[in-house]
Design a protein around this nucleic acid. Structure first.
Lengths: 207, 207
DNA sequence: GTCTATATAACGATAGAC
DNA sequence: GTCTATCGTTATATAGAC
C-alpha cells in the first residue's frame, strides 16, 4: 500500500515546520525552534527528513500543491463568467482565510529563488488559468467586460483577493486596528468582494 | 558640519547591502555576498557598520523613510478627492517603479517581526493617512463614492497599486511572460490605473 | 524510534600588519 | 582605510547508546 499511516511524530514535525518556515522563511527558521514547537527531540528532524533543506522543500511544495488544485478546479467549472467569477472569489477567500500565511511565504521564497518551483508552478497553475483567461477574452469581445486586457483584469482580481492577507501587518499599523478588528475587516471584505469583483470586471452597475 | 561627504566605500557597501537584504531578507543575506557585490573586503563591512544587524537596520529604516514622506505628502495636498486620488496613483506608481523591491521586503520583515518599526510607522504613515480617509468619508456621505467603508476603499486602492510589484515572480509564471513582457505589463498598468481607480472609487462610469 | 553527546560546517566578527 | 588570517559562536548534521 502506498498510503501507510504516517507516524504521529513525522506529522507533528511537518506541522511545526510549516508554521515556522511560513513565518520566518527558510533561513530565518531554526531547526531547534521547529523541534520545540513539535515537542520532539531535534535529532528526530533529521531522522525523518534528513536535512533542513529537504524539510523546507516539502513544506514549500505542499504549501502550494495543497492550494493549487483547489483553485484551478474553481476556474474550470462549467459556468458562465459572472457565476464563475463570483464562485471563484467566494471559494478563494474561504481557502485563503484558512491558510492566510501561505501567500506571503510563497512570494518571498519565489522572490529569493525564482527557479525553485518555476516549471512545477507553470504546469500546475499557468496552464489551468489559461481557459479562464480565454473565457474572459470571449466576453470581452462581446463587449461584456471592462475594456482592459485580460491579463490586467486577472491581476486586478487577484490583487484585491490576496493583498490584504499579504499586507496584514502594514495595514493594521496604518489603519491603526488590532487583530480582532482586522479579522472583522476581513469578514466584511468576504461579504462584499465577490459582488464587487463582478461589478468592476463585468462593468455592471448593479451592486 | 553634519553632512561630511560619505566615503565612496561606505556608500558602495550600503547600496550593495540594500540590494542583497531586499532580495534575500535579513537572515537570507550573506555578509560575503554584500562584500562581493560592493567589490570590497568583507572586513570593511564591520569597519563601517559594526555588525550585520546594524547594517540591516539602516537599510530597513531607510527603505521606509525614503518612501513614506513622499507618499504621505501626496495624500495631504489640498485638492478635491478625484484629483488627489488620480495624482496619488500616478506619483505612487512612479515611486514604486523606481523601488520595486521595497514593498515585498518590508512586508516580509514586518511579518517576521511586527514590533520592529511599529511605532515609527504609526507616526509616519498612520497619522498622515487619516486626513485622506476623512476626505473620502466626507465624499461618501455626500453619495459621491462607491458604497463601501472607507477602510475598504483605501485597501482596494493600495492593493491594486502595490500587488503586481509584490507578486511579480508568481504573475510572470502564471501569465507565462518574461521580464520584458512584465515591464510592458506594468507600463500598460501605469497608463490606465489612475483613471480606473477613480472610476471604481468614485463610482463613475466615465472611463 | 528516541535520546545524549559530539562532530562539522558556515558565518559573523575581530586582531593585527601595512 | 584596507587587507589577511583567524577566532568564536551558532546551527546543522551525525554517531552511537538505549
Amino acid at each position: 500500500m502506498q498510503n501507510e499511516e504516517q507516524s504521529s511524530t513525522e506529522v507533528k514535525i511537518f506541522e511545526a515546520a510549516r508554521e515556522v518556515f511560513q513565518s520566518k522563511g527558510l533561513e530565518g527558521a531554526r531547526m531547534q525552534e521547529i523541534a520545540d514547537k513539535a515537542e520532539i527531540n531535534k535529532s528526530m528532524l533529521h531522522y525523518y527528513y534528513r536535512s533542513k533543506e529537504k524539510l523546507f522543500e516539502k513544506v514549500y511544495q505542499l504549501s502550494i500543491i495543497k492550494l493549487i488544485p483547489q483553485i484551478a478546479g474553481l476556474l474550470n467549472e462549467d459556468l458562465p463568467l459572472e457565476a464563475k467569477l463570483r464562485n471563484f472569489a467566494i471559494k478563494y477567500l474561504e481557502l485563503i482565510k484558512l491558510n492566510p500565511d501561505i501567500p506571503l511565504f510563497v512570494l518571498h521564497e519565489m522572490n529569493k529563488n525564482p527557479g525553485r518551483l518555476k516549471t512545477f508552478m507553470l504546469n500546475e497553475v499557468g496552464k489551468k488559468i489559461q481557459p479562464f483567461l480565454n473565457q474572459i477574452q470571449e466576453e470581452r469581445e462581446k463587449g461584456n467586460t471592462v475594456d482592459l486586457p485580460v491579463e490586467q483584469i486577472m491581476v486586478n482580481i487577484i490583487s484585491l483577493l490576496i493583498f490584504p492577507f499579504i499586507g496584514r501587518q502594514v495595514l493594521q499599523v496604518i489603519l491603526n486596528i488590532d487583530d480582532s478588528e482586522f479579522d472583522q475587516f476581513i469578514e466584511e471584505r468576504i461579504k462584499y468582494l465577490p459582488d464587487y469583483l463582478v461589478k468592476i470586471t463585468l462593468d455592471k452597475n448593479s451592486l
